[in-house]
Design a protein around this nucleic acid. Sequence first.
DNA 1: AACTTTAAGTGTGAAATCTACATTAATAAA
DNA 2: TTTATTAATGTAGATTTCACACTTAAAGTT
Lengths: 229, 229
Amino acid sequence: MLNNYSSADKVLLAVDCIIFGFDNQGLKILLIKRDFEPEKGKWSLIGGFLKRDEVLDNAAIRILNTYTGLNDIYMEQLYAYSEIDRDPVERTISVSYYALINIENHNTELIKNYHAQWFSITDAPNLIFDHNEMVEHAIRRLRYRTSIKPIGFELLPEKFTMRQLLELYEAILSKELDKRNFISKINSLEILNKLDEKDMGSSRKGSYLYTFNKEKYEEKLLNDFVLNL
Amino acid sequence: MLNNYSSADKVLLAVDCIIFGFDNQGLKILLIKRDFEPEKGKWSLIGGFLKRDEVLDNAAIRILNTYTGLNDIYMEQLYAYSEIDRDPVERTISVSYYALINIENHNTELIKNYHAQWFSITDAPNLIFDHNEMVEHAIRRLRYRTSIKPIGFELLPEKFTMRQLLELYEAILSKELDKRNFISKINSLEILNKLDEKDMGSSRKGSYLYTFNKEKYEEKLLNDFVLNL
DNA sequence: AACTTTAAGTGTGAAATCTACATTAATAAA
DNA sequence: TTTATTAATGTAGATTTCACACTTAAAGTT
């Protein structure tokens, strides 16, 4: 009954984080090799337990910070997983979050200490519990998000080229995009600043660098835009 | 730490259901007048606690069934709410689900016994805790869902007219739709069966009745369709 | 200095989709 | 038979999407 605040059925609440990063090899996720039982030695998402005096969002932020040293990161709650035996030790419900980080920024010392490692989403190892399902779910959500928010920018460095942006979207959507159409669609959003600076790393000619214009982006969001790539 | 399966931080896990129904007055939600503390006498979503040996989806199904007598209903998990004091009695995390039901089908005896009542979404009373937020969230999700799945059919009787379908979508999206464009878009999906039967209730001429063609719909879903209304 | 190489940057026309819009048709009631 | 009511139906113009290829800039090579 509803009015029965019985403690008989209290459960442990975990938070698991799907941490996406992007570099010139493609879209990646950060995984950890567990050094404790159960499933010691197997790969897993990074996660932890919700504390009594903590909100889920903050648990996710804390966990991300513990393993990467990062703060102020885009995170979004995904789904609550509750299969009875999903964790063999004890009944645990897990709420998943996904994060998008600039892969260059994280604290490499930290992730080494925790035996964490980046894997391409196309050849990540098998994960413990229901973590594979969580990752698939997160990729679907990420794909959808790209069409209503330009969240891709979270995954790129401060200054980036059109090519990098294109390749990021190709990695997220796992399909090829037409370069010219992509650029004109992005430009029509008017949320980028074109810098005078060029990145000379990738070609003789050099390609212009862009930054993301947060103010214009916020304006756009009010008229809920859609980006069809 | 991750490897610490401590029971110190176990919490109560609630499930709250946003139950949508539709009739010729528009889109409605089912609310209950609480007859227990806290917040006795105030309006609330229907809900309950997750049991130790129960999956969240089943808890939602059980709760829906308790209050409406219905089974086999479309339900979808929405979000986990975890503000520290969202429930003043005890730390409780709530996972919300929304359900779409045919308003004619539910057990009216049951909802009377529970002091439950249908309210138009446009003039529902203020709700306890964070339930208002849950409802808003559910409406946003429902709007989005209509664009990628024709879930509106769950809210209509077995046989329905084009006008009913149109008005349902107008209620969900809370905007007027052009009748001719709507009908041709729906027809282009090819997921309806036009019956020979007419509904003579609403006009002299009578309007054809339709049923939803599940098989064709399943086919369509494979090529992930989008419906822009 | 000329030539080669590499990726960057740029525009158009055809096809598909979306939008706005008004008249005729069927039937019951008077 | 006339009237009243809602159902049913099509089109043309505007907009958006899509497919597609050549020129440009600059560094490297001879």
